[in-house]
Design a protein around this nucleic acid. Sequence first.
DNA 1: CCACGGCCTGATTC
DNA 2: AGAATCAGGCCGT
Length: 278
Amino acid sequence: MNKIILKEKLDLELSLFSGQAFRWEKKLDWYYGFIDNKFLKLRVKNNFLEYVCSEDLVAQNKIYDYFGLSIKYDVIFENFDDELSSIAYQKFKGMRVLNQDPWECLISFIISAWSNVPKISNTLHLLCKKLGRKYTLDEMIGYSFPSPVQIADLTEFEMKSFGLGYRAKYILKTSKIIKDNKTLLSDFYDKDYIDSLEFLLTFPGVGDKVANCVLIYSLKKYNAFPVDLWVERLLIEDYGLNKKMSLINKRKWGQNYFGRYSGIIQHYLFHYKRKYNH
DNA sequence: CCACGGCCTGATTC
DNA sequence: AGAATCAGGCCGT
């Protein structure tokens, strides 16, 4: 067993099950899933993040980075004077915006379009079970996320058997674009928000919302601001935006109002709205 | 540039 | 029961 000292509060339940990642499983007090493409389990105990790896050891800094633990959330929220944001922060303290694998994140959010969390999880599981490498840890089985090449070689018929529906061709086309250019996504770590956004928008099945999800949940663009159904309702009902305003203008308004870390604040507000307001 | 309708699918509702 | 409706949007017109 390995340990990481926590200086920031970390709530695994909130971080892993707040709609940003779809493949974690909880059993007893452990959370099983993949970080850096390696199967492991995690739990938090007495200010330590404990973890056990299946085969290959995961570098400690990769885990640290996955939960974005170098970012001080207290500072972000203390420096931003907004009642609803403070309430959401106090309620869900310990919920971290993850830095996932960009490739898996991209596919996950293309699948998420006009769908729901259980369905997204199920589809991803079927896809990984079909193509991923199998790992075991305790009694749990995990399948790694397939590469672009592996997915690109599937037929549309096979894809639809995962329940992908009309998204199947988006996933296929996107995989084929990335297939021959492996650094295409990780290159965005070094590029700014606008360049990354514009490039992501060229992928089929990727619009403004999905692109912003990939930017905030995997590429560390902390001012990315996905406007989904819930955030849109929030902006209209709680921040007085005009219903008629276009989605992109709502997104820009959010980025301007919530500032440099608007994406992190967005995640708290999204979770708050979704949980308490329907 | 903006508004609108159609869309795979599985769960839930009536 | 079986038809409508709904759900973390995107694309084409």
